[in-house]
Amino acid sequence: MKERIIFNVILLLSCLFTPWWFVALVMVIGMIIFEAYVEGIFGAVFTDILLGGSNWSIFFGINFLLSIGAILFYIFAFYLRRRLFFVSDKGRF
């Protein structure tokens, strides 16, 4: 739990001060290490809000690309984590 809180602080700081690709990296690592890392999606939404969305938009004018990407990776990580030998049942290294 303590590790998760520290990681959340790192995620929040990266949302505020780092480029979008670094936020995506932190989010991906978090979703692999921790079980059901919903905070990653919230971080992506927060970054999208801070940057006003991306310059490109997908269907129906949705330009929250990082958030959509976070949701897709959240689903992917759900299945991926079962196949990773270094992820324990508790959901971390």
Partner: peptide, 24 residues
């Protein structure tokens, strides 16, 4: 269910005019 709820939140926030000023 988590994915569905979060996707709905994202779509709502994307089309809301108040989210970005508050975030800023």
């Amino acid at each position: 269910w988590t994915v569905l709820v979060l996707a709905m939140i994202i779509v709502t926030l994307n089309f809301s005019s108040w989210t970005i000023p508050i975030g800023q």
